[in-house]
Design a binder for these strands. Structure first.
Lengths: 193, 193
DNA sequence: GTCTATATCGCGATAGAC
DNA sequence: GTCTATCGCGATATAGAC
């Protein structure tokens, strides 16, 4: 694909992230970015549908999730599938990037426009999981619930991991959150509360 | 404050929703909207911070949630608080508006920009619940988990209620989703999957 | 209320890669 | 030649400043 300049998108992303750090997200204009990258505005918008997209990857996480779910043996239960998948993602994609993620998270939290986009990415992951589980024959409601809870699980664990002053591992936070979930909704507590 | 036209925001919202139905959200411009409402663009942006906000209420749901949580007797458990609160919201805010919500939902689902905003509103509710529970002394992780699961619960129930061809009540869907959650994560199933 | 910066997208032309 | 990434120009809408 990169027949022309192998790293056009990367150059744009690098320039953009530098500028976001220097001047903040909203104070950085697309002309600023393309100026630094030595490209034109039109090129920027061919690589990124909007300025916020610079922040987020190529939606590889939902694709990885889909592949994991499709590739697992049919007898694996949904909960195991999800917890195992999240652990694999934690080890391969998140744990090695802790510092980058901390920086990115700080900028995202400060900017409602970026929070929105981040939430949309979470929703995409949720839907990938849901569709994958349905494809394995899981009941649609249960698939939706597993997906929703799975994404909340990883999300809460990520939040706490990135803030953890003790430097605990993401996996240990996943364990803690999962325990909390089980305690919260797992009992036979009354429904009509 | 509404010294001149008591219903300015309403007139703008009505005109906007009509146009969204007629031409679609992105094909409708703010000049279109203010033209139909007989107002100026400046007035539009004084009432709505952006075009998408027309779709969403005044953030009254998180405020209601905060009030409910703060007003409950201290001995009420978080899960009861949440399920009771959701039932109250269901009866007072959602059930009476089923048809409007169906129409809105269809437009929102079709437009990524609106899905983003919708997800942000959900996040606001989540944070209101989380803060309310923390204010009652609930452990921060547990508060975050209750809030996250509570919002997933109402959200999934809403999705299914709005699509339900049988016309089941929102409360019955809340029950079903809660059962599914309990079954999904409630068992002592292995964590390391 | 008016004015303006900025994001976004369409179109036609170009130019290196195969 | 045929692709396709890039460019240059231009149009329009949003959103915020004055």
């Amino acid at each position: 694909m990169a027949r022309w300049e192998p790293g056009t998108a990367d150059r744009l992303r690098t320039a953009a992230l530098e500028l976001f750090e220097e001047k903040g997200f909203s104070a950085t204009t697309v002309p600023d970015i393309v100026g630094r990258a030595g490209l034109t505005q039109r090129t920027f918008f061919r690589h990124f549908s909007d300025k916020r997209e610079v922040f987020f990857g190529d939606d590889e996480i939902p694709r990885i999730a889909t592949r994991m779910i499709e590739g697992a043996p049919p007898e694996v239960e949904p909960l195991s599938l999800i917890t195992a998948g999240l652990r694999a993602l934690a080890g391969s994609r998140f744990e090695p990037r802790r510092n980058q993620m901390r920086v990115a998270r700080r900028i995202i939290e400060a900017e409602p426009a970026l929070r929105e986009r981040d939430l949309l990415k979470q929703a995409d992951l949720r839907d990938a999981i849901r569709a994958g589980l349905e494809g394995r024959g899981v009941d649609p409601l249960d698939a939706r619930v597993f997906a929703g809870l799975g994404v909340e699980l990883i999300q809460i664990a990520l939040e706490r991991w990135l803030q953890d002053p003790e430097g605990g591992s993401l996996v240990s936070h996943l364990d803690a959150v999962q325990d909390s979930i089980r305690a919260a909704f797992g009992s036979a507590a009354t429904r009509s509360g």
